Amino acid sequence: MMAYIAYAVAWISVSAAVIAGIYMTGSAWCLLAFLFVAFIKVKRRSDDDEHEKETD
């Protein structure tokens, strides 16, 4: 679940930055920033998995 929140925060923050960049510069080149977010991979720590198993 936390990985999905991390992805959402990344997309939302980059979207806000791209909107601000396009507004300030008037250039669509800012859209290339979405490529950075497209290549993000969030891993879960293995000790989080162990903690979830203990609580089940």
Rank of each mutant, 00 (worst) to 15 (best):
M2E: 13
M2A: 11
M2P: 13
A3I: 07
A3F: 01
A3M: 02
A3R: 00
A3C: 03
I5Y: 13
I5P: 06
A6K: 11
A8K: 08
V9G: 05
V9T: 07
V9H: 14
W11T: 08
I12S: 06
I12L: 15
S13C: 05
V14D: 00
V14F: 02
S15C: 05
A16M: 14
A16V: 14
A17H: 04
A17T: 05
A17S: 14
A17D: 08
A17V: 04
A17N: 08
V18S: 00
V18G: 01
V18F: 01
V18D: 02
G21W: 01
I22N: 03
I22F: 06
I22C: 04
Y23H: 09
T25Y: 02
T25P: 04
S27T: 02
W29V: 11
L31V: 09
A33F: 13
A33C: 06
A33P: 00
A33G: 05
L35C: 01
F36N: 10
F36P: 05
V37T: 05
A38Y: 09
A38S: 07
K41M: 06
K41A: 08
K41N: 10
K43I: 06
K43L: 09
R45A: 12
S46A: 09
D47P: 00
D48K: 06
D48G: 04
D48Q: 07
E50I: 14
H51C: 04
H51N: 09
H51G: 02
E52A: 11
K53W: 06
T55F: 12
